[in-house]
Design a protein around this nucleic acid. Structure first.
Lengths: 159, 159
DNA sequence: TATTGTTATACTCTATAACTATA
DNA sequence: TATAGTTATAGAGTATAACAATA
């Protein structure tokens, strides 16, 4: 209980974003119980929902994970009835993964829940406040993108 | 490539927060390479840094994970020299986990990096904009906390 | 009896490497 | 020779259940 050394500083924008992100993750995990879904599996279904039938190769590229990982994720969503493997019409090496009706309905429901949550989160704010909030977040995202790009490419210090 | 059904709607505050959270996670993962650390292990060290020497039981409560999980995390941070198990002075069932010098120095460095990032993320904003951003995020966090509490306790619809 | 931490077991997400079938 | 997807193997994070030592 006793804080040994670090003073509990004022929460910053970074702290708030981290806290909100953690709450969102927690909430998602809870909503997945008994669905056979998870963050990774849902991400895969989400990509399928937007891109339509896809090869596992293209899914691996979209999710930025290994081919082996996609095999496991497709196994899982197929087993739970959200997607199915079908033959590729022209390339017999490849597999096309397609959403089932259940998968499609599930993604549509998630999209509408996402929209509703998007509205609820800012419902109590004045329009101009919501505006500044949005612009502030856009700014933060831009700075972060720049910092990450610099860290990944430490050579040049932008002039 | 072809968006099959969902129109690419305008990004919302929720979308921005999710994107920023993902970037932060990605950046953290990158910074962990070759340190023997990870999000979970760092979280444990962070709690130790603030709470001081702790039993594994209290760490399990603080991180909200199982006792078994703590055994593994402590094994790992001990193996990498960030913390050590010591005997509890009065309860011979319990183990006290304490940070080593390396662990303490690492947490201090992370704290200062966190503070620097906190400053950088809002550095380009006008003071009043940063203010509204902060208040907007506090609002969002509050709404989210309420929604999660309601979802966990669906009985009463708040009057 | 209750609590602390461990071992046993299992599931998910992730990776690399070797291999098969096809291009 | 290169590519798509699988199997083999491994490590991390997570869980529950059974168990030993201690309270």
């Amino acid at each position: 209980m006793s804080d040994s050394q670090t003073a509990p500083h004022q929460p910053t924008v970074l702290d708030r974003v981290l806290a909100i992100g953690q709450m969102l993750q927690h909430d998602m995990d809870r909503s997945f119980s008994d669905t056979g879904l998870s963050t990774s599996r849902t991400h895969l279904l989400w990509v399928l929902h937007h891109a339509g039938p896809s090869t596992q190769r293209s899914l691996a590229t979209a999710l930025q994970v290994s081919a082996r990982n996609i095999t496991g994720l497709v196994d899982a969503v197929e087993h739970h009835g959200y997607a199915a493997r079908t033959a590729h019409p022209t390339d017999r090496r490849a597999t096309l993964v397609t959403l089932t009706d259940l998968g499609r309905r599930t993604m549509q429901r998630m999209a509408s829940e996402h929209e509703q949550l998007s509205r609820e989160l800012v419902a109590g704010l004045a329009p101009d406040e919501a505006d500044v909030l949005m612009r502030g977040l856009t700014h933060v995202e831009g700075v972060l993108a720049r910092l990450i790009a610099e860290a990944a490419n430490p050579a040049e210090v932008r002039s």
